[in-house]
């Protein structure tokens, strides 16, 4: 895995408050925020439940992604070794999610469909941040409603936490009044190139053509 040196800041861009620009601005802000996380320019603590807080120093390099070993929705062990040489995307979510997760899986399914044969040169991963409820069986059922090339991953709380932490993803279990709980989580899709290095992100609600462009460029890293 490569060490990322982030040097860009784009978070201050302002644009007219028009729908398309609003979405564009949102994705620019996300990139800006990501850059800030990477650079640690404001001395932010990277929030990592289940792991130590990391104070990213100015100019520090941060690695996105690390070797992992989880359990797929078919009940088999699945690790970074199964992705060797293949670009992939990672989305962290949970099945008790009313909108962001099904929508993102739907959009990734649509993307795989549009990519046609090229889709074979990329792997789409859905990693649950709610492994207590999202067993392999639950994921298997859920994923039947989406493209069957998408692999769902779960595992022990420890293993899932380690993976999410390695991607600098944010997630938090939030108890609700009724004794239930929900999960806050990073809603962006991580793009990882053929070497397993961080390539970029696709923000929630990013326009479909922008998403397709990024995925095609991602796939090109593998050829």
């Amino acid at each position: 895995m490569i060490m990322i040196m982030a040097t860009t800041t784009a978070g201050t861009t302002t644009m007219a408050d028009d729908g398309r620009l609003r979405r564009l601005r949102r994705s620019i802000q996300l990139l800006g925020a990501l850059a800030v996380v990477l650079v640690g320019a404001t001395g932010w603590l990277i929030l990592r439940p289940g792991g130590p807080l990391v104070d990213a120093q100015q100019g520090a390099t941060v690695q996105i992604g690390a070797p992992f070993e989880l359990v797929s929705h078919t009940g088999e062990t699945f690790s970074d070794r199964d992705l060797a040489g293949k670009p992939y995307t990672v989305f962290f979510g949970f099945t008790h999610c009313p909108e962001v997760c099904p929508t993102t899986l739907w959009e990734m399914s649509s993307a795989l469909d549009q990519l046609g044969d090229e889709a074979a040169n990329m792997q789409v991963l859905f990693v649950t941040v709610d492994p207590e409820r999202d067993t392999p069986q639950v994921l298997a059922s859920y994923l039947q409603s989406f493209d069957d090339r998408i692999i769902g991953l779960t595992g022990t709380l420890e293993d899932v936490s380690a993976m999410a932490s390695s991607y600098r993803a944010y997630w938090r279990k939030v108890p609700t009044d009724d004794g239930d709980y929900t999960m806050d989580h990073t809603a962006s899709v991580y793009l990882m190139d053929a070497n397993g290095d961080f390539f970029g992100t696709v923000a929630y609600e990013e326009p479909a053509d922008a998403r397709m462009g990024k995925l095609r460029r991602l796939i090109a890293t593998g050829s």
Binding site: G11, R26, Q29, L30, G32, A33, L34, V37, P98, V100, Y170, V174, T182, D184, H185, T186, A187, S188, T201, A203, Y204, E205
Partner: peptide, 10 residues
């Protein structure tokens, strides 16, 4: 979904 890309629901 906030400007850091984190989804929250309450």
């Amino acid at each position: 979904v906030d400007d850091k890309g984190v989804m929250t629901m309450r």
